[in-house]
Simulated assay, not measured.
Amino acid sequence: MSDHLGWASVTAPPEADLPAIAAAAGGTQRLRYEGGQLYVEGVEQAALDAALDSVGTDPPSIASPVRTISPREFRLRFTPAERGAVTLAASRALEADDPTLQVFLDDLAASSVVELDHPDLAAGMDALVARELLSRARADEILE
Rank of each mutant, 00 (worst) to 15 (best):
S2Y: 03
S2K: 04
D3Y: 04
D3L: 15
L5K: 03
G6Y: 01
G6A: 06
W7C: 05
W7M: 13
W7D: 04
A8K: 08
S9L: 09
S9C: 15
V10C: 08
V10R: 05
T11D: 03
A12C: 11
A12P: 09
A16Y: 08
A16Q: 08
A16D: 00
D17M: 09
D17I: 06
P19A: 12
A20T: 05
A20L: 13
A20G: 03
A20P: 04
A20Q: 09
I21M: 05
A22C: 10
A22T: 00
A22F: 11
A23D: 15
A25F: 08
G26N: 10
G27S: 14
G27W: 11
G27Y: 10
R30T: 10
R32P: 04
R32Q: 13
E34W: 03
G35I: 05
Q37H: 14
Q37M: 15
Q37N: 10
L38C: 07
Y39P: 03
G42W: 10
G42C: 12
V43P: 09
L48W: 08
D49P: 04
D49H: 08
A50R: 15
A50V: 09
A50Q: 15
A51T: 10
A51C: 11
A51N: 13
D53K: 13
S54N: 13
V55K: 04
G56R: 12
G56N: 01
T57D: 05
T57Q: 15
T57E: 10
D58Y: 07
D58R: 14
P59S: 10
S61Q: 13
S61E: 14
I62C: 00
I62Y: 00
A63G: 11
S64G: 11
S64C: 02
S64M: 02
S64F: 05
P65I: 11
P65Y: 02
V66P: 02
T68I: 12
S70V: 06
S70A: 14
E73L: 07
E73P: 01
L76N: 12
R77G: 02
R77P: 01
F78N: 00
F78L: 15
T79D: 04
T79E: 03
T79C: 02
P80L: 06
A81C: 01
E82C: 07
G84K: 11
V86A: 15
V86W: 05
V86Y: 01
T87R: 05
L88D: 10
L88W: 06
A89Q: 07
S91L: 01
S91H: 10
R92M: 03
R92Y: 00
A93K: 00
L94Y: 00
E95K: 09
E95I: 01
E95F: 01
D98C: 02
P99T: 03
T100S: 08
L101D: 04
L101I: 11
F104A: 06
D106P: 03
L108W: 03
L108D: 03
L108K: 06
A109K: 12
S112C: 00
S112N: 13
S112Y: 01
V114E: 04
V114R: 02
E115H: 06
E115V: 15
E115R: 14
L116A: 07
D117M: 11
D117Q: 15
D117P: 03
P119V: 14
D120H: 14
L121E: 04
M125H: 06
A127L: 08
A130G: 05
R131D: 10
E132W: 00
E132T: 15
L133W: 09
L134W: 12
R138P: 12
A139W: 04
A139G: 00
D140C: 02
E141M: 05
I142R: 07
L143T: 05
L143R: 11
E144C: 09
